[in-house]
């Protein structure tokens, strides 16, 4: 079982990211669960969401405590290390949004990947909604699901032009993510 924890802010599509990943895994015939963490819904407040993917049925129903992968959708959250790094295992992976990936540094020695989701979102979507570029980056860095399955999930979630531009953001995220050393 692979456990993913998503960190973002209200309005950035954090919950949608986790849902799209779960649906992509379900399309592949795997078991998955998407667990959104709801508080008072407000734009800009820190939001967490969890995804589990497994080849076997998933029975546990609590939030992810020791994630294998952490995705940080909002770059300003990187300052809150106690939250981002909470419960990580030695071999956990962090994928984060960074305006200058080639000059980014690994977080506290964890295997880290970075992508400039801000520029992708502004160029493709025209608004700073980072989530689809970040899921693309997750898939590009880890191959957790096939890019094709993720695109299917995006098509199912959005319609028309919105689907097209989000698929574009997913593809760019997957292509542009780099391992930071």
């Amino acid at each position: 079982m692979i456990e993913v924890r998503w960190h973002g802010r209200g309005g950035q599509g954090t919950v949608t990211s986790s849902q799209l990943l779960a649906n992509a895994a379900i399309y592949e015939g795997k078991y998955a669960i998407h667990i959104p963490e709801f508080g008072p819904e407000r734009r800009g407040a820190p939001v967490r969401s969890y995804t589990r993917i497994s080849d076997e049925a998933i029975e546990i129903r609590y939030g992810v405590i020791n994630p294998d992968i952490v995705v940080v959708i909002d770059p300003t959250l990187l300052a809150y290390k106690d939250i981002i790094l909470a419960g990580l295992k030695d071999d956990s992976i962090i994928i984060f949004n960074h305006i200058d990936p080639s000059n980014a540094k690994p977080l506290d020695g964890y295997e880290s990947y970075a992508v400039d989701a801000y520029h992708i979102a502004m160029e493709v979507i025209g608004r700073p909604i980072y989530n689809t570029a970040m899921i693309g980056a997750l898939v590009g860095a880890t191959g957790i699901v096939k890019l094709k399955s993720l695109e299917e999930a995006v098509k199912k979630r959005f319609s028309g032009v919105l689907a097209d531009i989000n698929i574009k953001a997913v593809r760019r995220g997957a292509k542009e993510v780099i391992k930071v050393e």
Binding site: Q19, N23, I26, Y31, A32, I33, H34, P36, F38, R61
Partner: peptide
């Protein structure tokens, strides 16, 4: 069905 734990979680 448990609020949020089932109402809002996506499963196959």
């Amino acid at each position: 069905l448990d609020g949020f734990i089932l109402t809002h979680s996506v499963e196959p």
